[in-house]
Amino acid sequence: MAPSDESAQKSRPIRGSELLPPAEVSTLQAPSRAVRARSAPRDELLSIIEVCEELGIARATFYRWRAHRKGPASLRLPNGTVRIRRSALTAFIAACEDTTR
């Protein structure tokens, strides 16, 4: 004897989204990655090489500035790499322009 549709549904676990009407389920779902990227722009993290290329300086110059706390603010990631936020580099360049005038 084949099981009826009712018994097949009873043996299946109920998901949380099945308890709510479809209109309410859609409001509970997280926004897609593309929507989040547009709504909250991220501050790009640049590598030391990218910063040096943009400023036209040698890596040794960047490390010297960093040691003397003269360069753009940087951060060390848990894996040990150093990154510079795009906003910190922009602020550094703006501060350099202000001091040369």
Score class of each variant (00 low, 15 high):
S4W: 04
E6D: 12
E6G: 07
S7I: 14
A8R: 14
A8E: 12
A8W: 10
Q9S: 11
Q9V: 01
K10D: 05
R12Q: 15
I14K: 14
E18W: 08
L19H: 04
L19A: 08
L20G: 03
L20Y: 11
L20C: 06
P22D: 13
P22H: 07
E24F: 14
E24D: 12
V25R: 14
T27S: 13
T27D: 09
L28S: 06
Q29Y: 11
R36M: 14
R36N: 05
R36S: 09
R38I: 02
S39A: 15
A40G: 03
A40H: 15
P41I: 02
R42G: 01
L45W: 07
L46D: 11
L46H: 06
S47N: 13
I48V: 15
I49R: 12
I49G: 08
V51Y: 00
V51M: 01
C52I: 09
L55G: 08
I57R: 00
A58D: 09
A58C: 06
R59M: 11
R59T: 13
A60I: 13
F62Q: 06
Y63F: 15
R64H: 08
R64L: 11
R66Q: 13
A67S: 05
R69N: 15
R69M: 12
P72Q: 05
S74G: 13
N79T: 15
N79M: 09
G80D: 02
V82W: 05
V82N: 04
R83I: 08
R85W: 05
S87E: 08
L89P: 03
F92N: 03
F92W: 03
I93A: 03
A94H: 07
A94W: 00
A94I: 01
A95T: 07
A95G: 08
A95K: 09
A95D: 14
C96T: 03
C96S: 14
E97V: 05
E97H: 08
T99H: 04
T100G: 09
R101H: 09
